[in-house]
């Protein structure tokens, strides 16, 4: 049985950043869940870690939008990216400026974003899966992929969180 490795978010501030402004820096957590249930627990812990910062920066209901984006991105990385392989890591990095920036990296084979079926097309409406990316996009100000789809970059704006 493989050991779970989980780093507490560590300060990886860019060089030259004021060390007294730790919350302005970039933080990262590296997760190697052994099962989906453990991943759920990790997502909960991580969102509780970030939630006070979300609230202090004006996100009125982070347990809705921000949490849903975090959850869907990490579940995608686990299920579709890493194919639930506990040897592969899910790395989450985040920082705040005017917005909340987050990237979730998996160690899978990547994917072509353009080939993801649109769940709102008539032929896909009844499919029970394939809505994770839509949910991330719906709640995000910006969404992009790098590293052949293995890294998703998300921006959330507190103004988008004004209606809950």
């Amino acid at each position: 049985m493989s050991m779970v490795q989980r780093t507490q978010p560590v300060d990886v501030r860019p060089e030259g950043t004021d060390p007294d402004e730790a919350l302005e820096g970039c933080f990262q957590g590296i997760f190697r869940p052994t099962c989906t249930e453990e991943l759920r627990s990790l997502i909960l812990s991580l969102s509780r870690r970030i939630e006070p910062e979300w609230r202090s920066r004006g996100y009125r209901s982070p347990e809705l939008r921000a949490r849903m984006v975090l959850e869907e991105a990490m579940l995608n990385a686990w299920h579709h990216g890493n194919k639930e392989d506990p040897q592969k890591a899910i790395t989450v990095r985040w920082y705040f400026n005017e917005r909340f920036h987050m990237e979730v990296q998996d160690e899978g084979e990547g994917f072509d974003v353009d080939l993801i079926p649109d769940p709102t097309r008539k032929e896909n409406l009844c499919r029970p899966n394939g809505r994770g990316i839509f949910i991330i996009r719906h709640f995000s100000r910006q969404l992009a992929w790098e590293d052949r789809g293995r890294r998703v970059l998300v921006e959330l704006d507190p103004e988008d969180d004004s209606v809950c």
Binding site: E63, L75, C126, G130, I135
Partner: peptide
């Protein structure tokens, strides 16, 4: 209910079908 994710929506769709 405060929140529903893609897995939960999937269950609603299975029920609908």
């Amino acid at each position: 209910a405060q929140r529903i994710g893609s897995a939960g929506i999937g269950q609603l769709l299975l029920l609908y079908k």
